[in-house]
Simulated scan of single mutants.
Amino acid sequence: MAASEPKRIGVSFEVKPHAYDPVTNPELFEGVVARRIVAFLIDFLILSLPVVFVSMFIFVIGIVTFGLGFFLYGLLWPGMVVWAIVYYGMTLGSASSATIGMRIMDIEMRTWYGAPAYFVLGAVHAVVFWITISAITPLVLVVCLFNERRRCLHDFLVGTIVINNVERAAALRTLHRPA
């Protein structure tokens, strides 16, 4: 290295291309929006059931302790947030890169360059989703109708993409293959 050249510090930045092309692989994106909505409803149910049971338990404890147990309701909201972040982080960070609802609907989440999701990405994806849905509700879903990869607003912000899983994509590919 010459003395006049800049010294490297060990950090490199390379822009990776999109891994999934909707023109060459349309089966990856077919029906993803509707399946995503149903998967969200399934996951919402899975997240809500333990909260409902804990709420009923706190109510019973409150009655038994003559009102002192009702103070536990103050811990319910932070507990719900932690439960949701852990749920999304653990399920999206699993080998299937999908929540339970997404597994039922045969879809999975990947990074835009094709890598599987991981715990932190799943947790951040959930947080960004809840923030964007709270701030600008209709735009979160409307965005997916106007791009080829059917990415929602929070997918763009976090750098993820939701596609059909390998089995569903293969089935759609054979279904659409000319005879």
Rank of each mutant, 00 (worst) to 15 (best):
M1Y: 03
A2Y: 03
E5R: 00
P6A: 02
P6W: 00
K7S: 03
G10Y: 01
S12H: 08
F13G: 02
V15G: 05
K16H: 05
P17V: 04
P17F: 03
Y20W: 09
D21N: 14
D21Q: 04
V23D: 13
T24H: 05
N25W: 00
N25H: 09
E27G: 01
E27S: 02
L28K: 03
F29Q: 03
E30R: 03
V32Y: 05
A34K: 12
A34W: 07
A34T: 09
R36S: 14
I37T: 13
A39Y: 10
F40T: 14
F44R: 13
L45W: 11
I46Y: 09
S48W: 11
S48A: 15
F53K: 06
S55L: 06
F57M: 13
F57P: 03
I58R: 02
I58T: 04
I58E: 01
I58K: 01
F59G: 15
V60T: 12
V60D: 07
V60S: 08
I61Y: 12
G62W: 12
T65A: 11
F66T: 14
F66S: 15
F66M: 15
G67P: 06
G67V: 08
G69A: 08
F70H: 10
F70I: 04
F70E: 05
F70W: 12
Y73E: 03
G74E: 04
W77Y: 14
P78F: 11
G79N: 07
V81K: 06
V82R: 07
W83E: 06
I85Y: 11
V86P: 01
G89V: 06
G89K: 09
G89A: 07
G89W: 11
M90S: 15
G93P: 10
A95N: 13
A95V: 13
S96Q: 15
S96L: 12
S96V: 14
S97T: 10
G101R: 10
M102R: 15
M102E: 15
M105D: 07
D106Y: 10
R110F: 09
G114C: 07
A115N: 09
A117N: 14
A117M: 13
A117I: 02
V120P: 00
V120A: 08
V120L: 09
V120N: 02
L121K: 07
G122S: 06
G122M: 06
V124L: 07
A126Y: 11
A126G: 01
F129V: 06
F129N: 08
T132L: 15
S134V: 03
A135I: 14
I136D: 05
I136M: 13
I136C: 08
T137N: 14
P138T: 04
P138G: 06
L141Y: 15
V142S: 04
F146K: 05
N147K: 11
N147G: 10
R149H: 10
R150S: 15
R151W: 04
C152W: 15
H154R: 06
F156T: 02
F156C: 05
L157W: 01
L157T: 00
G159P: 01
G159T: 01
T160D: 00
I163G: 01
I163T: 08
N165W: 09
N165R: 15
V166I: 01
E167D: 12
R168G: 06
A169H: 03
A170V: 00
A171W: 02
A171Q: 13
R173V: 00
T174W: 01
T174I: 02
R177S: 02
A179Y: 02
A179R: 07
A179W: 02
